[in-house]
Design a protein around this nucleic acid. Sequence first.
DNA 1: ACATTAAGTGATT
DNA 2: AATCACTTAATGT
Length: 210
Amino acid sequence: MHEKLQDYFSVVFEPELLAEIENNGRLVKLKKGDLLIDVGSVIKEVPLLLEGAIKIVREDKDSHEIVLYFLERGDTCAISFVNCLNNAKSKVRGIVEKDSMAIFVPVKKLEEWMAKYKTWREFVIESYSSRLDEMIEAIDMLAFMKMDERLFKYLSDKVKIMRDPILHTTHYEIAVDMNTSRVVISRLLKQLEKKGKIKLHRNKIEVLEY
DNA sequence: ACATTAAGTGATT
DNA sequence: AATCACTTAATGT
């Protein structure tokens, strides 16, 4: 826990705060597919991501979903933190996208730290605003971009987050993430392959350009 | 060999 | 861009 914490957070947090995180947080290993938070749940612990990636998804009542943004190492979900200071329920779902490691810190502590540590305050504000930026980007994508552009952005985003140009996913999973049908995704992927931007395999997509 | 699941495709709306 | 109705290909038992 110490080393990883140092790796990603020692540049942003002062030593006392790092020590507090170590004393109050619990280290959790997360497996791909784990459900971190669901719509309607109240959060009492917030994760600081040491390694891996989390997908944040919005879901409607008919289980249509749309990906809002991804969390990476060094990130936290400030939205859910601020949200639970407000005693509100989560409006999003967080799913572990690849095997991850995180430190869970009780919200109560985080609240104390807001007053105590400047770096923590700045971190939360920073994180909140970049999450908001990403969400606005997601809205732009839905409102203004065509399916083929959306798909290519989805692929290149995912490559960046997974840190691997070979995506181990199916057409169906992409279709669910983008709230469209598998057939549409298959056709668009085929077009991208013809343009030489990707290479298709079973359960696997090689992204050549991103 | 057979069943299941992933992916490709034409036709229709 | 979505849906239907297949076909083909890859994989698991």
